[in-house]
């Protein structure tokens, strides 16, 4: 279920990117896409067993229990931080654009 939801989130984000012309809305769509992508990555490593546990366990016990895949979680942590970096730069650019054109709408900015 969550797998489908995450693919839908990616698709919704893409749709928002294709149709919106407002700078803030575009960055919001990017964020929706990234959240969908993050959930997708985590679902890829999920093990739907009652006995599967989160990957926090001491070395001695590891042979006896099953844990979910820790690698996608590490990758998502990296992806989240990278996403914050791009969002911060995108918002700074939005602020710059507002200072220059006094609007957030890309169509109203006009060509130079």
């Amino acid at each position: 279920m969550l797998l489908y939801a995450s693919v839908l989130l990616i698709v919704i984000g893409l749709y928002g990117l294709l149709t919106n012309r407002n700078v803030i809305k575009i960055i919001l769509s990017l964020n929706v896409l990234e959240i969908g992508l993050n959930i997708f990555i985590i679902t890829v490593g999920f093990l739907d067993l009652e006995e599967a546990i989160a990957p926090i366990i001491t070395l001695q016990q590891r042979a006896s229990v099953i844990v979910v895949d820790p690698l996608p979680q590490a990758l998502v942590l990296t992806a989240i931080v990278i996403g914050v970096g791009t969002t911060a730069i995108g918002l700074s650019l939005a602020k710059k654009m507002y200072d220059k054109y006094h609007t957030f709408n890309l169509d109203e900015m006009g060509e130079e």
Partner: peptide, 12 residues
């Protein structure tokens, strides 16, 4: 499928 990984075969 969802909830059925084989990560014990890979690098994980």
């Amino acid at each position: 499928d969802f909830g059925d990984t084989n990560h014990y075969d890979g690098i994980s």
